[in-house]
Amino acid sequence: MPVLPGAEPYHHQGTEVGVLLCHGFTGSPQSLRPWAERLAERGFTVSVPLLPGHGTRWEDLRLTGWQDWYAEVDRELRALRDRCSQVFTAGLSMGGALALRLAAKHGGDVSGVVAVNPANRLHGLFAQSLPVTRHLVRTVPGIAGDIAKEGAVEIGYDRVPLHAAHSLRTFLRLVDGELPQVTQPLLLFRSREDRVVPAADSARILSRVSSTDVTEIVLEQSRHVATLDQDADRIIEESLAFIGRLATGAGKEGTTARG
């Protein structure tokens, strides 16, 4: 199945400092492309893989699960480690959960994590009934496109296959149990208004990681897909500063900041 125009994976070979960006559930690398290109302009080696089942049609997503999505970013991380002396993981929404699990599982091979509106669980009665509902209902309306900025568009599915949503629920519960294994510096962005992932998810993540170098930044002008929204430049500049600080070996013994 052809990839949707604009949803292609992105790769750039640069310095020995690599950044792996992970997109969200039902989304594509397009939601991270401006961020990836700015990192590349600064000379970093950058990889934004297209997760299996994404970027084509929702019927393809129905045939995949969290093991497929995680395996893809795990392969990309290993490939970056072969080429780079340091690697950072980053992601949006489910991509933030993927980035955190990579940090938990790979330890010292990940130098830091940047998470934008990271997901920690599926919420509400809908999530609780998924084990049964997925056998009765194929899809529900999509979650893509929660952006405040006028004219900004996210390439994502207009339907969510419930078999894939159930797999996501399983994955997020798994990651929650592994969060204490995350010890790397963490930069977390949270939108004040987010119609997809509530603030409770970020709070839960911050309460469970073992990182001591932690910064939380609240985005006042963006909704869920903040990487394409009005705070996109702030995400880029703050992440560049975060990576630059750690890549140069400065400030690794950081303190916890809240903003």
Results as ranks from 00 to 15, higher is better:
Pro5Gly: 07
Pro9Gly: 08
Gly14Asp: 13
Val17Gln: 09
Leu20Asp: 08
Ser28Ile: 01
Arg33Trp: 08
Trp35Val: 13
Ala36Trp: 04
Glu37Phe: 04
Arg38Thr: 02
Ala40Val: 03
Glu41Pro: 00
Ser47Met: 01
Leu51Gln: 05
Pro52Val: 05
Gly53His: 04
Thr64Leu: 10
Trp66Cys: 10
Ala71Lys: 14
Arg75Met: 12
Val87Asn: 13
Val87Glu: 12
Phe88Glu: 09
Gly95Ser: 08
Ala99Asn: 09
His106Gln: 15
His106Pro: 05
Val114Asp: 06
Ala115Pro: 00
Arg121Tyr: 12
Gly124Ile: 05
Ala127Tyr: 05
Pro131Leu: 15
Pro131Glu: 15
Val132Cys: 07
Val132Lys: 10
Thr133Ser: 13
Arg138Phe: 01
Thr139Tyr: 10
Glu150Ala: 15
Glu150Gln: 15
Glu154Leu: 07
Gly156Cys: 14
Asp158Arg: 15
Ala165Asp: 13
Phe171Leu: 08
Phe171Arg: 00
Leu174Lys: 09
Gly177Ala: 12
Gly177His: 10
Leu188Cys: 11
Arg195Thr: 01
Val196Ala: 08
Ala199Asn: 08
Ser202Met: 00
Ala203His: 11
Ala203Cys: 06
Glu216Trp: 09
Asp229Asn: 00
Asp233Ile: 03
Ile235Gln: 08
Ser239Val: 02
Ile243Ser: 09
Gly251Leu: 13
Thr255Met: 07
Thr256Tyr: 11
